[in-house]
């Protein structure tokens, strides 16, 4: 999609994990592109592979159980899968920043923020003096909306609220001025009023810095707020992708439609039965052949026993035998 060379191009990414019962194919042929400055939402339910996608891109899969079976990930045309490990370290941080759901475990609990900020700032800008690094830390903390940052720098992570910790983690990710920020459920553990603060913050920083963002979430409402494009994942594959404006107003894949239907909207008639998607997500050890949604799909036919090809037009891509674009 789009004529420019994409910032990030993921092609046929496939990941499996070794388990006691054999290899589980968790990601199967995931492909998408991301332009500079663009925000892509990666949505799906637990176990669909959205977090594994980000771990695959950054080559942070747990070792030795996780393994990339095939596919390529290109950042500005450079294949990250080919890079030696020490080169990959220079990509994480300066080129690809990451923030996670649980800021408490991502921050060092026994170091003051000043030391952690200093470390992440000077790692990427070794020429800065300690005083300059402190100035930069104050600037970053102010930018992410932390009140009286000079006092907060002396705090340990546990002294901050959940929302404040998430702001600190964002400030640290931004310290290296990455071209791409991967945000993995950054607001899921937060209360709704604090979530709104963090979403607006990420949106503002993205616009100011022209950063590309991959926003991983299970919440379609969050995608609608912060993303331009969205990819819907189910059982390790992308089943549909497109612009948020078009996909949200006219979802084509039966799974995407089912997801939208089962959300309890505020404007639904209360106390009436909600539409559901019957059945459950298949286990990665026991994936159905062909379309992986077929066993739960009302429209499934014999054709669905073969893998659906991804049909695409400039606005949308859908992997379903029963839909024609």
């Amino acid at each position: 999609m789009g004529g420019n060379v994409p910032l990030l191009s993921v092609d046929d990414l496939s990941v499996s994990f070794r388990t006691e019962r054999g290899r589980a194919a968790v990601l199967d042929g995931v492909s998408f592109e991301l332009q500079a400055g663009e925000t892509l939402g990666l949505v799906g339910e637990s176990g669909c592979g959205k977090s594994v996608t980000s771990l695959g891109i950054t080559r942070l899969l747990p070792k030795p159980s996780g393994q990339i079976d095939r596919g390529s990930v290109r950042l500005d045309g450079q294949d990250l899968m080919e890079l030696p490990a020490f080169e990959m370290q220079k990509i994480r941080g300066p080129r690809i920043g990451m923030i996670f759901q649980d800021a408490m475990t991502a921050l060092n609990p026994v170091q003051r923020l000043s030391r952690q900020m200093d470390e992440s700032i000077r790692l990427h800008a070794p020429t800065l003096s300690r005083a300059q690094a402190t100035d930069r830390a104050l600037e970053l903390l102010t930018d992410v909306g932390i009140p009286s940052p000079e006092l907060r720098l002396n705090d340990y992570p546990h002294q901050l609220s959940g929302g404040m910790r998430q702001r600190v983690m964002i400030a640290m990710a931004l310290s290296a001025e990455p071209d791409l920020l991967i945000a993995d459920e950054p607001t899921t553990a937060l209360d709704v009023t604090v979530q709104a603060q963090i979403l607006m913050l990420i949106k503002r920083l993205q616009a100011e810095r022209g950063m590309a963002v991959i926003f991983i979430t299970h919440d379609l409402g969050v995608v609608a707020q912060v993303c331009q494009r969205v990819a819907v994942m189910y059982a390790g594959r992308i089943v549909e992708q497109g612009s948020v404006a078009s996909l949200f107003s006219d979802p084509k894949h039966p799974y995407t439609q089912g997801l939208f239907n089962s959300i309890p909207h505020l404007d639904r008639v209360p106390l009436t039965p909600l539409p559901t998607i019957e059945g459950q997500v298949p286990s990665p050890m026991d994936m159905p052949p062909g379309c992986r949604f077929a066993p739960r799909c009302q429209h499934a036919t014999a054709a669905c026993l073969t893998r659906p090809v991804l049909q695409s037009n400039p606005d949308r891509a859908v992997a379903c035998h029963q839909v024609s674009l």
């Binding site: 709704v192 979530q195 709104a196 979403l199 607006m200 919440d219 409402g221 707020q225 948020v244 505020l266």
Partner: peptide, 15 residues
């Protein structure tokens, strides 16, 4: 503060 899936109206969250 609730992020809604309604994309037809541009309604920013008011935190």
């Amino acid at each position: 503060a609730i992020p809604t899936v309604d994309v037809t109206t541009e309604q920013p969250l008011k935190p």
